[in-house]
């Protein structure tokens, strides 16, 4: 249930830490996004670099595409146990839908694979 103005955690190493959803990219004028949906986000805060000299990929107030990977809302399918996460989080991607980061430091739901995000699932720390 991600809408505009929702704050989202970034779980990859693209450089952003907290982003805000500014548009849900869904057909039919739907307002809320779930796992696997694409949203437009504005970068709020950056991840600290601890003095390391890394080329900045990311700046504040930039607009990027993102894929929602975890939601706090309970997802329930028939014949299984419902699943919910402790935070709403997102992985940043290019407009061509390639991941901006190189690794994901979070547990991702396995249904991302069925939603054409097998690449993200492969990068994940663990899949549940």
């Amino acid at each position: 249930m991600i809408r505009t103005q929702t704050l989202l955690k970034v779980v990859d190493n693209s450089g952003a830490k907290l982003v805000k959803c500014i548009k849900v990219k869904k057909k039919g004028g739907k307002m809320s996004a779930g796992v696997g949906d694409i949203v437009l986000v504005a970068v709020q805060t950056l991840r600290p670099r601890y003095g390391r000299r890394i080329r900045l990929k990311m700046n504040k107030s930039e607009v990027h595409h993102g894929v929602i990977v975890q939601t706090r809302r309970l997802y329930r399918n028939k014949g299984g146990i419902g699943q919910s996460f402790s935070s709403n989080s997102v992985v940043l991607v290019t407009p061509q839908l390639k991941p901006l980061g190189t690794r994901i430091s979070a547990v991702l739901p396995s249904r991302l694979r069925g939603l054409k995000w097998a690449k993200l699932a492969a990068m994940a720390k663990k899949i549940i």
Partner: peptide
Amino acid sequence: TEVCAFSDTRIYPGHGVRFIRRDGQP
């Protein structure tokens, strides 16, 4: 079936919640 982490009741398919903690532990 699975077992509830709090009350130790058996959970049959179609019931229950799996909550994934911040550290990734379900």
